[in-house]
Amino acid sequence: MDHQAEEQLAAYVLGALDPEERLQVEAHLSGCPRCQAALAAYEGVAQGLLHAADPKRPPRSIRSNLAKQLGKTRARPSWRRSLQRVPAAGLGLAVGLIILLTANLGLLVQSQRLIEQGQKALAQQQAGQTAVALASYPSSQVALIEEDGVRGTFVYDPSLPVAVMYVWGLPRLSDDQVYQAWLVDAQGERLNGGLITFGADQGFGWLMIEAPKMMEDYIALGVTLEPAGGSPAPTGPRILGVDL
């Protein structure tokens, strides 16, 4: 796909692409800063279209229904507030240690960065090739991700233990956080699906999952916010979910 892909971006933001076209655009976007910039411009138009519908005063019953419902449905607890309960002195010491270690490891990090960039480019290429290959399987399935401003595609073949996810629009993370994917089986067990990798500007992420079982053994995919390095089981807030 060359830069004429830019012309498909208008259809992409409107949701007008068929799943395979969408997947191709996302695979291209993950490595093309020019198209990522063009996409941001079209996203502006889409936001404008959201606001272009005439406001209409809703019936009063909605407000009263909601007011009644609030008591039954709890707002999700905040992981940030949990962090605030850590004693300030302990937090300061931990932060100080991290800063000290970071300074001493600076040189090592610089040399490792080049290696990581190479590995990241290779992983991205592999994910793209796998996604396109999967999409060409007759029994492949594509689950669209559109949730709270996050957009993406999850492509998998139920009879294979491999899947690829592209995702766009996740909130930017600090260095001590990661997005971790989980495969959920019929018993509700969560299996680590890996950490989402991001491009240079952290706008576009991808993940290739190699699961121990066939994808048909899983009923859903979820993504949570976790501490750097990931967690053995979900601990942070749910960011998005896809039914398979």
Partner: peptide, 15 residues
């Protein structure tokens, strides 16, 4: 609006 209530934590004003 129920989603706004249950998922308020995921709203990031910087975005």
């Amino acid at each position: 609006f129920v989603r706004m209530w249950t998922r308020a934590e995921t709203f990031d004003p910087k975005r």
